[in-house]
Amino acid sequence: MWFQLGSAALGVWLMIAPAAIPTSPGAAVIDRIAGPIAIFIAVLAQRSVTRPARVVNVLTGLFLLIAIWLVQPGSAHALNDVLVGWLLIILALIRGKVRAHTGGGWWTILEPDLYLYDDVDALAPDAQPASSADQ
């Protein structure tokens, strides 16, 4: 959770950075693309159920590391983006605490684990019979 909040904070910083440090128009564009994406993915990966989405921010970090050399950044801006890029990658790779259970996650849509959940399904307190024909 804290790691994803860190990614979101880095995203906010990326949106502010072009106004706060010496920069070039091209470098500003890089930050203003990466910033909103970093926030979007960080919020998505905040909860246990969608935590796997954090890996997308590895790409956001790589984008920063690579794209900043395609424009002419000032040295301060280049240093900033390289640092933020690596931080985003590191934070995206840390899973953090997954507290909630979510029925096996997203892959179970393709392969429902019927054996595992048969009993849970049937013994749910809400599983009242609709008819009482056999009584």
Binding site: P36, I39, L44, V49, T108, P112
Partner: peptide, 29 residues
């Protein structure tokens, strides 16, 4: 507005998983 949309999507999309798992089990049965 953009922040609100991001929060609703990011924190609310998990419900779809429960429904998709339910449909998937129904199909398998």
């Amino acid at each position: 507005s953009a922040l609100v949309s991001t929060l609703i999507f990011g924190l609310g999309i998990g419900e779809a998983l429960a429904s998709l798992q339910y449909l998937s089990r129904a199909h398998a049965r």
